[in-house]
Write a protein that binds this DNA or RNA. Sequence first.
DNA 1: ATCAAAAATATGTACAAACATAAAAATATA
DNA 2: TATATTTTTATGTTTGTACATATTTTTGAT
Lengths: 244, 244
Amino acid sequence: MKLSIDHKSAVPLHIQAETLLREMIKEPEYQAGKLLPNEVDLAKILAISRTTLRQAINKLVYEELLVRKKRLGTKVAQSKMSSKSMNWLSFTQEMQARGIPIKNYELHVSWVYPDDYIANFFDIKTEKKIMKLERLRGNADEAFVYFVSYFHPRIGLTGDEDFKKPLYEMLENEHSVVANLSKEEISARAADKLIAGKLEIDPGSPVLFRKRFVFDQGDRPMEYNLGYYKAESFIYTVESRRNS
Amino acid sequence: MKLSIDHKSAVPLHIQAETLLREMIKEPEYQAGKLLPNEVDLAKILAISRTTLRQAINKLVYEELLVRKKRLGTKVAQSKMSSKSMNWLSFTQEMQARGIPIKNYELHVSWVYPDDYIANFFDIKTEKKIMKLERLRGNADEAFVYFVSYFHPRIGLTGDEDFKKPLYEMLENEHSVVANLSKEEISARAADKLIAGKLEIDPGSPVLFRKRFVFDQGDRPMEYNLGYYKAESFIYTVESRRNS
DNA sequence: ATCAAAAATATGTACAAACATAAAAATATA
DNA sequence: TATATTTTTATGTTTGTACATATTTTTGAT
C-alpha cells in the first residue's frame, strides 16, 4: 500500500487522496473514533493543498465514514450499514465458500443494442451494440438462478473470455477493471414465461429479482446485472448498525 | 420563494445556493433532464464565486439530484426515489419522508407462547407468554405490507402503548430501548392463504418476505419481526462498497 | 460531399490566501 | 475554589486565479 501521492499520475490528486484515506481508516490504528491528523498538517504531509484534501475528505464525510467536528478534528465514524456476506462475493466464490459445486446450465454471449434505460446508465448511445451475457446456474441438482449481464464497452470484452471463471476475478485480471461499488435493488416478482422456463417453475410463481448496478474504481458504471432467483433457494442477508 | 442570495445573512452562501438550487429543480421548467445555466454564468447571477456555487452543486450531485456532463452542462437527474437510508428508518418514518400518508388497516396485540425458534432467539423459555403485534399497513388506497412482531419481555411492554406512533421512537421514549443493530433476511415467497387474504392478492402470488432480528444497545435481542410485502410495491435497496 | 483539424464551451482540477467560528484549554478574576 | 475571560486550535466559508480536459461545433482540406 502506498502512503504517498503521485503528482505525475493521471489520476486526479483528490481521487488519490480519497483512496488513500479509505485505506488509512481501515488500518487498526485509525479504527473506532480515532482522529485523523488535522487538515493543514495532512495536506502538508501529502504535499497537496488543503482545498484538494478537503475535497477528498468531503466525499468520505458524505458517505458517513468520517465525521467532522469543529476544533476537535475529523474522526473515523462508527462502521455502519455494513451489508455483510453476499455482497462482495461473486456467485461462484460464494457457492465455493459453501462447498457447493456450481453447474452452468446455460452460458450465452450476444451483442445487442442497449435500450434507453441501459444506455442511460452506461452513458452511451443506443446505436452501438454492447455485450450481453446470459447465464443459467445452479448446483448439481437444479438451476436456481438466471443472470443477465450487460457490460460497458469501455471494458473491451471480446466475448471470447472464459465466463466459467469467477467473473469479477476475470475482469480484474484480464481487463484491469475492478468492481468497487454496487447498488442493488431487491424485489419479489412473478416469473414470466421465459424465466419460468429457465428455472423450471410455473409461470406466475415467485422469484427474487435483483437489479445490480456495478461501478469500477472511478465510480464509473461497468456492469448492469439482472438476477432471477428461484424462491426459497436464495436469501439475501443484510446487517446494519445504527450510526448516531 | 426568494431567487437571490443574501450576502448579509448568517446562513453560509453555499447553503443558500444549495436550497435555492433545490427549489429551482422543483420548478416545472427545470424538470426532467433540463440543463441548469452554466456555472460561470450562474455564479455571476447569484453574485457568488464559482467555487462556492460548485460546493452547492456538488452536494446535489452526491445526492444524485443533478448530473454533470463535461461540455454539456449540469442537468437535472431523473428522480429515483432511492431510499438510501432505508435501513434505519422505520416504516412510518420512511413513508412520511416520501410524503405518503400511512393507513393502519389492522392493528392487533396478543400474548402468545413463543415457538422454539423465537424462544431461542430471545433466549427465553417457551412457557412464558410474550407480546405479539400484528399490523396491516399501507397507503390510502391499499394495504401493501403485513407485519408480525414479537418483543422481548425485558422491554416491559403492556400492550396499551400507542402503536400508531413510530414504533422505535415509542420504544425509545417510553421504554428506553434503542434499536442498535438489525440483521435482515430477504427472500421471495408465495403468499399463503392468510397473507393473501390480508394483502388481497391470490394465494401463491409473490410477496417479498423479510425477517428482521433487532438488537438493542447492548446487542441483546429485542424484536423479531416478519414483514410480508406485496410484490412490486416494495423495493429493497442496498449500496455497498468493497472494503478489501 | 466527406473527413480531418481547429475553435469554442462547458465542467474538472488545483492552488493560495484570508477570515469566520465553534469548542476546548489556559488564564485571569471574583 | 469557582467562575468569567482570553487564547488557541481545529474546521468552516469564500474568493480569485489558472490551466486541464472532454465534447460539440465550426472550419478547412482533400
